[in-house]
Design a protein around this nucleic acid. Structure first.
Lengths: 346, 346
DNA sequence: TTGTAAGCGTTATCAT
DNA sequence: ATGATAACGCTTACAA
């Protein structure tokens, strides 16, 4: 009471209530039967002292953190924010604290990961933020790990959204508008999602007997980079009449570059995005894109993590689970839909 | 070694190296001189066992968490993502782990805050997510607290961006375009930022001898709500020729409502936003708004927190600091700039 | 039903 | 320079 910064401990409560610390613990967590009268004594002592059990003491004794972490490359743009939102909501409603770690575009140093691993019961790892070797190390060291938007590895769970089939369908849709000379703007090498979208894009070309471009026009998942890439493409000798952008932000940059070049999106050059961020429908022309369930990806990741943590504690661990969530084409105007010709597939 | 999930402890290392745990600790953190030969023995034992000190054990002994938290109402929209981004970057580079807690629009239950308080050395609290009484409780219980985008309280530090003067200037600018009948779309009661913007809006009316609207058209800081509010306003008997929106997302919704009503933003109805989110410049017409340094707010919050934590540990705590960061008008087209008349202030 | 005491994994204070 | 050992705050056998 003298030092306001010093919180009451379980021993203070025990002393005040005239019982042992074990009894206080039992009352506080209802782990074993206690006489009504002692319960009352203890409870009023707890109330008077404003006792809150120390998280550290408890975790140390119980050998668990009641916390989970999420590792992501970057927090700019709506995609990661939405995934984290789902993750946080699910974790919190599950009574778990949430730690975040951004790798700021690069791969996370192994010791940052280890440090996080020492503070949580498990973590959700997004994309290509962590080398496989480090993931294996984490798993063997006892952390539960779930992978998100990443190719699965055998040793643990994963969640992702479908990419290839949707990319193929979207590409076919562009062909249906008579757009057979397409550019892919994005970076298949830096992101597993980007790679799968590129693969679907190429597959559609094969299906249709159309020669795909040799390679993607490289761009990070950001508007500024998309603008640059589109400007480069416009200045090139290639005569692409449609830009398949690896996400909506890149598409947004492409809009700007195309408009600046005095051309019109949807008429002169078709543009498509990916993610279906809120603003997509408000652009003019409205952006054709692919909807993926970002919030749900994060929430499901948290649930799978909870399950894996529980099974790790119990009898031997479950077989790894690999979930793939559905995505959906959202046809608006930027692909050419609603234009004069309005054509349907080849 | 037999159970892969069981990490080596400091005692394992001590045994292997044939020294005491104290010596291992000294070697590991360089806190006291150690003979070269024993250092080597210990270091190789550490390496062989892959020893990493337990965060829990260390925190319990050192009575600190090396972690800070951030409490925010919601993670949708670019504003909070950006603030968190700055906070995380600063904290991580400072060697601190980052815990997040979203209150999901409501006020955070006191026990969630207490739980967070038990896991961190301090926290950044955004807006009106926590009742003042709970903040006081946290401060007295020894947590360092910094307030962000909230009116300061005497007992601790705060950071915010300037609102009133910018809102007044923006309103005056609209008057200069001949827009003297304005609506304020936003909710001054739910957010301190919103309130200050409203106050600046009203002050500009007083300055100009123009009667301000009795009250704001209520809208949460979301596009959907902005759309609804703008639609309501359009359907009303009021004849506002300009909408002062409390943030960019509301403005985005207003764009949609105005366009649907067959009117043209910037010509028929002027619209302004707040925040200067990336998409603002890509709308047509480009959105006139107020730029505020969101990333820097978060980063500065983290720095102030670090300072306050350090001073709490040292000799008696520093006097509370209250920072106000500058904001900046960004005049684009939606206010009427670039239109035929292009007029200047009254 | 309740108490005693042994962990949980560190750091830090004493001795030596 | 090094080793015992007492904290740090809790949970949980094991006894009574």
């Amino acid at each position: 009471v003298s030092d306001p910064a010093k919180a009451a401990t379980i021993r203070d409560v025990a002393r005040k209530a005239g019982v042992s610390v074990a009894t206080v613990s039992r009352v506080h967590r209802g782990s074993a039967p206690v006489t009504e009268t002692t319960r009352e004594r203890v409870e009023s002592a707890i109330a008077e002292l404003g006792y809150t059990p120390s998280h550290l003491g408890r975790s140390l004794a119980e050998r668990r953190h009641a916390a989970i972490g999420i590792v992501f490359p970057d927090l700019s743009g709506p995609y990661f924010a939405e995934v984290i939102r789902g993750f946080e909501a699910e974790a919190t409603s599950n009574g778990q604290a949430v730690l975040i770690l951004s790798t700021h575009g690069r791969e996370a140093p192994a010791d940052q990961l280890r440090a996080l691993g020492g503070r949580v019961d498990g973590m959700l790892i997004l994309g290509r933020t962590v080398p496989d070797a480090v993931i294996d190390e984490l798993v063997t060291s006892g952390s539960a790990v779930v992978l998100l938007a990443r190719p699965p590895i055998p040793s643990t769970d994963s969640v992702q959204a479908e990419n290839r089939a949707a990319a193929r369908a979207l590409t076919q849709h562009l062909f249906g508008h008579g757009r057979t000379s397409l550019a892919f703007i994005g970076d298949p090498t830096s992101s597993p999602d980007g790679l799968e979208r590129w693969e679907g894009f190429v597959a559609a070309h094969r299906d249709a007997g159309i020669r795909p471009p040799d390679r993607a026009v490289p761009s990070a998942f950001r508007e500024q980079e998309g603008y640059q890439a589109a400007a480069t493409e416009l200045a090139s000798s290639r005569d692409a009449t449609g830009y398949f952008c690896a996400n909506d932000e890149i598409a947004l940059g492409a809009y700007a570059a195309i408009t600046e070049a005095g051309l019109q999106v949807g008429r002169d050059i078709a543009v498509t995005g990916w993610d279906d961020v809120p603003v997509a429908r408000h652009l003019s022309p409205a952006l054709t894109t692919v909807h993926q369930p970002m919030y749900e990806l994060g929430a499901l990741g948290a649930r799978m993590l909870a399950t894996r943590i529980a099974s790790a504690t119990g009898s031997g661990s479950r077989a790894p689970l690999h979930e793939v969530l559905a995505t959906q084409l959202v046809l608006r105007a930027s692909c050419g839909c609603g234009q004069a010709q309005g054509g349907n597939a080849r």
